[in-house]
Computed example of a mutant assay.
Amino acid sequence: MTPTGNTKPQLPASQRLDLRHVNIEYVVDRVESALMTRLHRDQVVKKRRSMGYRSDRGTWVRIECRGLERLDGQGWGLEAAGVLASVPIPAWHAGLSWHDPARQVMWRADETALIDEPPIGRSIAASSLPDSWWTELDRAMEALAEASTTRLATPDLKPISVERVRTAIAKVFPDAETPIEEWSTAHADLNWANMTGPELWILDWEDWGRAPRGLDAANLWFSSLAVPGLADKVLERRRADLESVTGRTMRLFKCAELLAWAAEDEPLHAPAARAVRDLLGGTAMSRAS
């Protein structure tokens, strides 16, 4: 669906609307009516582009705002993720979506099983996860990688592609080689805030799909660089992905995305720069040096 009439070009919804600061009570009213349940509005979990609520029947309801520019024919990620076997995803129960012409966005609500296990959140909290958690993560990531799908991953709301990866790296490391030889199925937003512990559940599936091998592992490795020993732990567990030809490119991609804009006082700047020197053998000219 696309807007009609004399609609002027506008910023993507992710830049126009921050749900942490926008009143969407009329959206919540509609979701409650359609799902025939009441949401605990005083316990809402707010993020930039989604909001989550417990329901009065012991389920979880996630409401997402998506700009019309993101209607790509792939469907809604959480509902589609129901086909992924052996991956710890909250069971999906029901969903609804509609066009909001006043805001020029699509709204989507999904009702799922309620997961009481808390998100890990900050990377420092991941340091104390038991070995059993890492074993479950390995199993989940291997099952996900092997899943067949026609969906294309959309990390940070944008479709992944060879051109996107190489362009991002070339901005910072113009002489770096960036081979991408393998693709697999990925969550595409795998970070410590989207996983629970000590029992593993993986949350927020709106961006999953095919991606260069190692994207998920590179996300975790990169977000762990500032915590002593944690990135090494991720590398140890996911070495086959991260040390593959494509996996090394994905690690460089994650570092380049940050180093393109970050000042030296950014906590991840120094460890990312050191990681790049290891990846490139200290030979490339870059802003990280």
Rank of each mutant, 00 (worst) to 15 (best):
M1C: 04
G5D: 05
G5K: 01
Q10K: 12
L11R: 10
R16N: 04
H21W: 06
V22P: 07
I24M: 05
Y26N: 12
V28N: 01
L35I: 00
T37K: 04
H40S: 05
V45R: 12
R49Y: 00
R49T: 03
G58D: 00
T59S: 08
V61I: 05
C65W: 03
R70T: 15
L71D: 13
G73L: 09
Q74E: 08
W76F: 15
V83D: 11
A85K: 14
S86W: 09
S86M: 09
V87S: 01
P88N: 10
H93S: 10
H93E: 03
A94D: 07
A94K: 15
A94I: 12
H99N: 09
A102Q: 15
R103L: 15
D110W: 03
E111V: 15
T112A: 06
D116H: 13
E117T: 14
I120Y: 14
G121M: 05
R122G: 09
I124V: 15
I124T: 12
I124N: 03
D131V: 11
D131H: 13
W134T: 05
T135L: 03
M141T: 06
A143K: 02
A147H: 12
A147Y: 05
S148W: 09
T149A: 03
K158V: 15
I160F: 00
I160A: 00
V165I: 07
V165H: 02
R166I: 09
A168M: 10
I169H: 00
A170M: 13
K171V: 09
P174R: 14
P174C: 15
T178N: 00
T178S: 01
E182Q: 01
W183E: 00
W183F: 13
S184H: 09
H187F: 09
H187R: 06
D189I: 05
N191C: 12
N194W: 14
E199S: 11
E199Y: 06
W205G: 06
W208G: 10
P212C: 03
A217S: 06
N219L: 13
L220K: 11
L220S: 04
W221V: 08
S223Q: 12
A231Y: 14
K233V: 14
D241G: 03
E243Q: 14
A256M: 06
A263W: 07
P267Y: 06
A272S: 07
A273P: 00
A273F: 11
L280C: 15
G281D: 04
G282I: 10
G282R: 08
T283P: 01
A284Y: 05
A288C: 15
S289C: 08
